[in-house]
């Protein structure tokens, strides 16, 4: 069935994504780590779909759609911020700081 190993792998990948978001300063790489976390959750859904029917796979389909939309809008925002501050360093992204 591979359910346990799949969930464990998903846990490890999700944790790696969290670490990436916390330690990196390049905003594009942080964004990629968010994608990594979404992938880890997709793996959980597919693993549990084996047990509970194909509804889990449908959820993965929707997660991928939302992830694609999120990537498009997020990268557009990054581009817009880059025009202002001319850097991708998260430390310099303090437009909302009072």
């Amino acid at each position: 069935m591979l359910l346990g190993p799949s969930l464990a792998l998903s846990a490890v990948l999700f944790a790696l994504g969290v670490v990436g978001v916390l330690i990196r300063r390049n905003v594009v790489v942080v964004f990629m780590c968010v994608e990594l976390m979404l992938n880890a959750v997709n793996l959980t859904l597919v693993a549990l779909a084996q047990l509970h029917g194909t509804s889990g796979q449908i959820m993965v389909f929707f997660v991928m759609t939302v992830a694609a939309a999120e990537a498009v809008v997020g990268l557009a925002i990054i581009l817009a911020i880059f025009r202002h501050v001319q850097t991708v360093d998260l430390k310099q992204f303090n437009l909302l700081k009072g």
Binding site: A8, L16, L22
Partner: peptide
């Protein structure tokens, strides 16, 4: 630290 806690929590899902 956060990653270790998170991994432990998620691995219990096994």
């Amino acid at each position: 630290g956060l990653a270790a806690v998170l991994t432990a929590e998620l691995v219990t899902l096994r």
